[in-house]
């Protein structure tokens, strides 16, 4: 793989430009003193300052974090259990394959269809309880439903690398079910569980459509707020907010990478 033809760098550069130039343009506009961004009128942190004073943005940020934290916590536990239940039990091949396909459903379903399915599901559940009316509860449940699959896949990939003899050895060395879980299974899975949790958190922040389809009054998240405000026209505050969110993603990706490194050591 050492000697690539020179021309390969052209599409590579173009692709990276496709990915980053728009984001950079937003970042530049977020520190441009010009309100309408038609020309460069000097550097300012002004728009960032306004961001923190903005009530609607504050509320949306709170919702975003609330949804991300709760859904991540729940989906990490459920996803880890799901991976264990799928991988550590001698299911007959057919059952295992069916479960495996079901697990991949949220991963492979396009967002919009996933969201439409949620609308239908909550439409039915709403008949039973007002808890499922548009708002934070269905939004959080919707997030969990797709996060759980990702967490389970990450954890299961780790489980697959652990030799079964480790568990047999633990039994052979007098470990009961609990001791085995707390002293062997969980410590060995921890990097993957943490990685899955970070991924789930990122996915929750990244989501727009599922939140958009399940939101009610007062439960808008940051992406929904941005989407709504775009209809009223561009504003530098939105640029500032978006830049901060991209930076948050960068931080999370770096966190996952760090975890990957530690996993390699053990």
């Amino acid at each position: 793989m050492k000697n690539l033809p020179r021309w390969v760098y052209v599409p590579v550069l173009f692709a990276l430009a496709l990915l980053y130039v728009p984001l950079l343009a937003v970042a530049v506009q977020s520190v441009n003193a010009s309100r309408f961004g038609t020309s460069w009128q000097g550097f300012t942190w002004n728009w960032y300052g306004r961001l923190f004073a903005h009530e609607a943005i504050g509320a949306a940020a709170k919702n975003t974090l609330l949804v991300a934290c709760i859904s991540t916590a729940v989906s990490t536990v459920l996803g880890t259990c799901l991976a264990l239940g799928l991988d550590r039990i001698p299911w007959p091949g057919r059952v295992r394959r069916a479960l495996d396909i079901l697990l991949h459903l949220p991963v492979i379903t396009p967002d919009i269809l996933f969201a439409a399915a949620l609308v239908v599901a909550f439409g039915v559940l709403r008949q039973a309880s007002s808890l499922f009316d548009p708002g934070l509860v269905p939004m959080i449940l919707g997030h969990i439903a797709f996060q759980v699959a990702f967490v389970a896949l990450v954890v299961r990939a780790r489980l697959a690398t652990l030799e079964p003899e480790l568990f047999e050895a633990a039994r052979d060395l007098y470990a009961g079910k609990r001791y085995l879980f707390w002293h062997v299974t969980l410590p060995l899975l921890l990097p993957a569980v943490a990685g899955g949790a970070l991924l789930a958190f990122t996915l929750s922040l990244d989501d727009f459509i599922i939140s958009f389809f399940t939101t009610g009054s007062g439960s808008d998240t940051l992406p929904i707020y941005i989407y709504g405000s775009l209809r009223r026209g561009l504003s530098p505050e939105i640029h500032a907010l978006s830049t901060l969110m991209v930076l948050a993603t960068v931080a999370l990706v770096l966190g996952v990478e760090r975890l990957n490194r530690t996993r390699e050591v053990t």
């Binding site: 030799e163 003899e165 047999e168 050895a169 633990a170 052979d172 007098y174 470990a175 062997v184």
Partner: peptide, 15 residues
């Protein structure tokens, strides 16, 4: 886990 028997595994299976 209740047998007074211990095993050395082929690949050792160290934790």
């Amino acid at each position: 886990q209740q047998r007074p028997v211990n095993t050395v595994f082929q690949q050792y299976a160290l934790f």
